[in-house]
């Protein structure tokens, strides 16, 4: 009874929450009955992007595990901050779920210090859902063929080697900055915008020498031989790129990095509900069909060990990228 009153009060005082989840009170009655109505998952990017792709593959399996419809709501804008803001204002009843990613949850807080939502305070972590490694690709005409050759080549030409990225604060750029620092290189960053496409186009055209980019964006060009691959940022080799060494093998275990997506719920969501969602994510990410479809796109479906582990992971990621962002000058202090 107490909990119901508390949640009711919270709802009453938060007009936005009441509007966005009109029947939240039903759920507040008994978390054991959750979910008794469709759940909306907010994807902070447009359909067709990496986040949307992963969520749509997870949707049927999660629906089945929860025994409820899952409704995907794409709220794009301002590097994902628009969608994150909408989700943070949802009622903490388990019917508003945020499908965040490394950019929104772990990079934006440092990159945009003025943003209104602080993800570490506004959300409770549930579980990671997918991880995508990046590859270091280069134009075939670029002389170095391996990471070792690249290091020698760049050391001999400080500040002269250009690397592209899909944006100043993109995870792709920060991954290259990690490598640059680990190898002690001075390279020149060239930011693009509008997704990975334009940057990859300039690699193909030979206008920029190399870049770190998520595997799905690079795959067609690797297959067609228009780019060469020097390394992959995952811990283990990728089955579809069996001859590409990992950064661990190359002696840089600290620069292992993935672009990840994961589920978060508004702060204050009852623990039993978080657990139910967590179980559903574990089931969905283990579904062979989901795993296979994701792998075709270069993405690995994976769940956290526990909500706490996801929380620790996020905190680590946020701290790690904050250092890289500040050191690389991706944002002015």
């Amino acid at each position: 009874m107490n909990r119901r009153q508390a949640v009711g009060l919270l709802l009453g005082t938060t007009a936005a929450a009441a509007i966005t989840a009109p029947s939240a009170a039903v759920a507040a009655e008994d978390p054991a009955k959750y979910p008794s109505q469709p759940i909306r998952v907010i994807v902070p990017f447009a359909p067709g992007g990496a986040s949307d792709f992963a969520m749509r593959l997870l949707q049927p399996a999660m629906s089945q595990a929860l025994g409820q419809q899952i409704v995907i709501e794409n709220r794009a804008g301002a590097a994902g901050n628009v969608g994150m803001d909408v989700a943070a204002r949802g009622a903490p009843d388990g019917y508003t779920v945020f499908f965040g990613n490394v950019g929104t949850v772990s990079i934006n807080p440092t990159l945009y210090p003025d943003m209104t939502v602080k993800p570490d305070k506004a959300f409770v972590a549930v579980s990671v859902a997918s991880e995508t490694p990046s590859v270091y690709i280069a134009n075939p005409k670029f002389p170095p063929n391996t990471v070792k050759e690249l290091i020698d080549y760049a050391k001999a030409r400080p500040g002269k080697v250009n690397f592209a990225s899909p944006g100043s604060g993109s995870v792709d750029r920060l991954e290259m900055e990690l490598f640059r620092k680990a190898a002690g290189l001075d390279m020149n960053h060239v930011p693009y915008k509008g997704g990975a496409g334009p940057a990859v186009a300039d690699i193909l055209g030979g206008h920029v020498e190399l870049m770190s980019v998520t595997l799905p964006s690079a795959m067609p060009h690797i297959k067609s031989g228009r780019v060469k691959v020097m390394a992959i940022t995952s811990r283990e080799r990728n089955p579809s790129l069996a001859d590409v060494p990992t950064v661990v093998e190359l002696g840089y275990p600290d620069i292992v990095a993935t672009s990840w997506q994961g589920f978060l719920v508004p702060a204050g969501t009852p623990r039993p509900i978080v657990d139910k969602l967590f179980q559903a994510i574990v089931k969905a990410t283990a579904d062979p069909k989901v795993k296979e479809r994701m792998l075709e796109g270069g993405v690995t479906a994976v769940a956290s060990d526990s909500p706490e582990q996801f929380k620790t992971f996020i905190d680590k990621e946020t701290a790690r990228w904050a250092v890289v962002i500040k050191e690389s000058g991706a944002v002015a202090d």
């Binding site: 792709f53 067609p220 228009r226």
Partner: peptide, 25 residues
């Protein structure tokens, strides 16, 4: 080439991806 020349074309790539197809040569 699998390269989008505009935001609409980027959406087309996404549409193909959902069908397990990857735009490109």
């Amino acid at each position: 080439l699998g390269l989008p020349a505009s935001p609409v074309m980027a959406l087309m790539i996404g549409a193909l991806m959902m069908h397990g197809l990857y735009a490109g040569p």
